[in-house]
Amino acid sequence: MVACTALAFIGMAAAILERDPFDKLISLSVMIGGIFPFIVDRGYLDVVTATALIAPLSTIFILMVCRRQQA
């Protein structure tokens, strides 16, 4: 749990401090990976299953804007 806390805070600090949008998305993925074990720890397994399946959709929607701005 201490390791997951460290993971969430490292990802948050890196996601704020990065400049490139792809690096920000990668750091955001690190932060989400640190947050998920807390939801499992409370015992909400159905919530974890649903959230893990619909969270990448948000990233893919942002990636559409990234490709549109770079092209």
């Binding site: 499992v40 974890v48 893990a52 969270a55 990448p56």
Partner: peptide
């Protein structure tokens, strides 16, 4: 739940 997180994270990384 672990399988769902595995699928979602791999999909996100491959999309990036």
């Amino acid at each position: 739940a672990a399988a769902a997180y595995f699928v979602g994270s791999t999909l996100e990384s491959n999309a990036i």
